[in-house]
Design a protein around this nucleic acid. Structure first.
Lengths: 139, 139
DNA sequence: TATTGTTATACTCTATAACTATA
DNA sequence: TATAGTTATAGAGTATAACAATA
């Protein structure tokens, strides 16, 4: 009967909650053969026609080196299209197939998010999200 | 001026907050040449003399395949010792050097946790940790 | 000079399969 | 049969360095 000294560490709870939620989302997205990061990028492109990789990288706080192959995969699957903006940057938009696909992605994500919130008392949901955002934006 | 459609997704906020906190902790632990998972295991061993790998794995919800090399590294550094319990399991305990080392680890972790909580209004800290634990234990 | 996108590479955490030795 | 520990391998996210092409 070992003792758990991590019980009351918020950082540890944060990590465990995040890992659990991510694993669950990954399982749900697997039916679309899509990874969580890819889903995130698709949703952002859907909301921003002709967004560039550098804008995506800034918004999602990713390394540009990781965005390049991700975008290539989405393009290779015919979900997005590139259109030159100037000589070095390209505007990314959903393809026709991509629009239908993103609808399915959003359905999975929304269900996932609803499932998360359902585990919390309704009265605390707003404060919880606010706290998370305070943690990540102040770092 | 792109639009961020992820702003209000609690799952996304959870992930970003967790990644930010983990990266910060990793930076702080780097001065000890220690990774966050190793620090976590060390702290649990410190609180449980002669704990076994299988008990660690259960408490931390890790795969036993990942615990084996981690424990080997800690042993190779002289931080922990193994003592046979029966023919197949070993009790893990801190070495003399390990005790001093864990004191430094705890200092770093405690400062890190305090830093996290400091970003939240004091009145919300309890509810926040409770919410995190609800998310991870109900999954 | 600075920015955009790219390639190569590596680290950390997590996951599965298969195996041994022991209970 | 089930459990403890191990090895090998793979996937996913993140990170840095270096580079070509363009602004």
């Amino acid at each position: 009967m070992p003792v758990d000294p991590l019980k009351d560490y918020p950082g540890y709870a944060l990590r465990r909650a995040s890992v659990a939620a991510m694993a669950e989302l990954a399982r749900k997205l697997a039916v679309l053969d899509l990874r969580p990061t890819e889903a995130t990028v698709l949703v952002v492109i859907a909301a921003n026609v002709k967004i560039t990789q550098s804008e995506l990288v800034k918004m999602l706080d990713m390394a540009s080196a990781n965005m390049a192959p991700l975008v290539s995969r989405l393009e290779a699957r015919g979900l997005i299209e590139r259109e030159p903006v100037d000589g070095r940057s390209q505007g990314l938009s959903l393809s026709t197939a991509g629009h239908g696909f993103v609808a399915r992605v959003k359905k999975i994500i929304d269900a996932h998010e609803d499932g998360l919130l359902a585990k919390l008392p309704a009265s605390q949901r707003g404060a919880f999200v606010a706290a998370l955002r305070a943690l990540w934006s102040e770092s």
